[in-house]
């Protein structure tokens, strides 16, 4: 039990994440992916929209709303019930005007980028690569290129 309360090692975490791929297929017949939920919520919130990307019946993809709602609940359980000491996941320095601005810009890039790339780390890097899809490998390499540009070239200008 004490082992569960500590942070888990990679060889537990990674395989447990990988299991999401067959589990979601076998229990629900769905391909693993998270970032499409942004589109679903967009479609849900704009029923009479003229934007074609959001013109579909979100009830047909309602399962994804259940998935991300579960992730929120799981986040609570993991940090409050299954951790000896709940830990923060963002730097202290982000609790400032500058930090909030960075999260706003970063969040915009995440939402825009994942939809344009047609997937995120879940849908491309885990599900897509597991399915041996070249486009997913290309997308995943692009995610890393973006991350490296930000971390090595832009961060030094920001901090």
């Amino acid at each position: 039990m004490e082992k569960i309360l500590e942070p888990w090692p990679w060889y537990i975490t990674g395989p447990l994440i990988g299991l999401m791929v067959p589990a979601l297929l076998l229990f629900a017949g769905k391909s693993f992916g998270i970032s499409s939920s942004f589109r679903d919520i967009g479609a849900m919130c704009s029923p009479r929209t003229k934007i074609s990307y959001l013109q579909y019946d979100w009830r047909k993809t309602l399962w994804r709303i259940f998935l991300v709602a579960g992730v929120v609940i799981g986040g609570f359980i993991g940090n409050h019930l299954l951790s000896a000491v709940p830990v923060p996941f963002l730097p202290e320095t982000y609790y400032s005007l500058k930090g909030v601005t960075l999260l706003l810009i970063g969040g915009l890039l995440v939402g825009f980028g994942t939809r344009y790339a047609d997937g995120c780390t879940s849908g491309h890097t885990i599900m897509g690569i597991s399915n041996l899809q070249w486009p997913s490998l290309v997308a995943s390499i692009s995610f890393f290129i973006g991350g490296l540009i930000m971390t090595w070239l832009i961060f030094p200008l920001l901090f």
């Binding site: 939402g111 825009f112 980028g113 939809r115 995120c120 290309v138 997308a139 390499i141 995610f143």
Partner: peptide, 23 residues
Amino acid sequence: NIIGGIIFGLGWAVTGACPGPIY
């Protein structure tokens, strides 16, 4: 996949979270 992917990567490094982890 490439352009959007790079844009997402930029945001990922700033926010420290891809979509699943945001939730």
